[in-house]
Design a protein around this nucleic acid. Sequence first.
DNA 1: CTTTTCGCTCAACGTTCGTTGACTCAACGA
DNA 2: TCGTTGAGTCAACGAACGTTGAGCGAAAAG
Lengths: 187, 187
Amino acid sequence: MGERVLPRAERRRRTEEKILDAARSLFGELGYERATIRGVARRAEVDPALVMQYFGSKQELFQRSVRMAPAPDGELGPDEVVEHVLGSLGMKLELPEGSLAMLRSMLTHPEAAESARQMLGGQIGRLAEALPGEDARLRATLMTLTLLGITVGHQLLEMEELRGVRQEELARLLRPSLRALTGQDVP
Amino acid sequence: MGERVLPRAERRRRTEEKILDAARSLFGELGYERATIRGVARRAEVDPALVMQYFGSKQELFQRSVRMAPAPDGELGPDEVVEHVLGSLGMKLELPEGSLAMLRSMLTHPEAAESARQMLGGQIGRLAEALPGEDARLRATLMTLTLLGITVGHQLLEMEELRGVRQEELARLLRPSLRALTGQDVP
DNA sequence: CTTTTCGCTCAACGTTCGTTGACTCAACGA
DNA sequence: TCGTTGAGTCAACGAACGTTGAGCGAAAAG
């Protein structure tokens, strides 16, 4: 029947990706502690020992599941940066599964917390460059954490108040609020 | 020496409180999964079996550790509500240990997530009553999640950008941003 | 065809955890 | 004073976990 025979290299690649997909989704649903190697293996339709053989340890599997390409950055003005941030961190429904796994675990798994700090720090740094004023970095932090809070409430806590709310609606309500954090006062 | 003899009732009360304190701090540091009954018992200088005898299960111990008196609410105007929210959720360094334990676990422990939704829902409801307009509840949600994000970054992720920043400084930067979410437009 | 490689499975080990039941001993009530 | 209560301890259970090593069978190499 439909079972094709694959060369070894290709077969290995597919199995590894199948495990990584299962790991990303399970870590994203349950967090680092509750997600088990056995559970990942079951979801990937594979033996638990194979997961160990491929990734060495649960810790390394998690790291591989979470690693992502860093966002490309370009020079922006203080106004464009608001639009950029509105379209970037989390608001979009297409938040990659790897990020979800990292966010889910960041409060209870020290290594995930470090990854989160790095990712947020990157975002903050890029934002701060585009903002004027003395406390640009502090304001960039507050903007980033604002988006983090909404992402947490929406994607992880699944608050009913945000269920089915369109992205543009959120952007419309949030835009004045974020502009107020840019520091280019118009009082 | 300093070891006084206590009546049974009083002794029980003190031991129970000692265990609860240990549980709150350990749940707050590690989250539900990583914090163990044995660890709580060690911190409370007590036998693990005693913790079970007092609270029945780890789950019930967590619930008791997290339960808090709901914040008192009063009628507020749309302006006062901003000041109220600035002084309430998390910004203050005195965030009670029970809340910390709940927030730490909310992304990975389903029951903690439910408690968090309830607490945030309460805050949102109180806020929404004070806000004008059609989408008052949605804007109240965004205000609440903004504060949640900053609390998470500050108290749980311990982002260095917020280390040692004074509460009034945060309030000053955040005030215009939160006002922009009240909905009383002045464009 | 023979030998080697390697993807994969199976069965098990050791540890840690939540939880339990039997026990000890000092405080209490009659 | 004597029997009862109840706070606290001790040792152990069963389950689940991460992890390991031996082995099977098919693909690759010769």
